[in-house]
Design a protein around this nucleic acid. Structure first.
Lengths: 117, 117
DNA sequence: TGCATATTCAACCATCTGGTTGATGATTAT
DNA sequence: ATAATCATCAACCAGATGGTTGAATATGCA
């Protein structure tokens, strides 16, 4: 896994990790809070966060005993640019984006993001 | 793996498959010709093509005993739109794209794509 | 000090992934 | 008909992935 595109695309291939990224779009979060909506152990979420970290998609900063996770969206740029070459996708169709993001968010285990719609 | 984003991102996470897509950007190809530049068995390439097919990134059409592979770049749209939400990437930076594509192509096993640069 | 909280580590497990080889089916050419 | 070519199938393998649990490590608080 030398190529950064490998790690970024692999990180994005998991729905739990995409949901985490969508959550971090709203705000920085502590690991425990990231884990809360998912029906899986804290350790599992911790591993997902490591994968997102290694892909450069998030940064984790420890303050006290709490580790804060924040989005680093620039890491997606290389992948996005690579993909742009395969079709002239309209520059940021926001309507389509909102529909997709809403669909992503509504996949969260206890549907808390549905309130935002 | 219900979500199409899962299969598309997973398909893109492998460098062999990205190289195949880059090759198909130039022209439709038969399976044997796709396999030629790689140091791996035809069966392995055949499996990669199945994965790209299932992700909707290519179409395969059999004519006679030859199966032709062609790019279906629209399948990347959903993934691209999803990513766009995480940062306002400039709408198609072609310079950057050319650099990335060249880097991708130069990763091909026997460097045949380097001739195009 | 002693206890609760936040997070990771370590070991383990089932399943998926990416590769191999040899056999097989389908098509074309001699 | 026979042989060669194109591609997949089937069985197998090593290593990665995504999850679990219980113990360990920090840190904060009383």
């Amino acid at each position: 896994m030398a190529d950064p595109l490998d790690t970024v695309f692999a990180a994005l291939a998991d729905p739990t990790r995409r949901a985490i990224l969508a959550m971090l779009l709203e705000d920085d979060m502590a690991v425990t809070d990231v884990a809360e909506p998912f029906e899986m152990s804290l350790a599992a979420i911790s591993k997902h966060l490591v994968i997102l970290s290694r892909a450069g998609l998030i940064a984790q900063e420890k303050r006290g005993r709490v580790k804060w996770c924040k989005l680093k969206p620039d890491a997606m740029r290389a992948a996005s640019v690579w993909m742009q070459g395969f079709g002239q996708f309209e520059p940021v169709n926001l309507d389509a984006f909102e529909r997709f993001l809403k669909a992503e968010l509504s996949d969260l285990p206890d549907g808390e993001a549905a309130e935002t719609g």
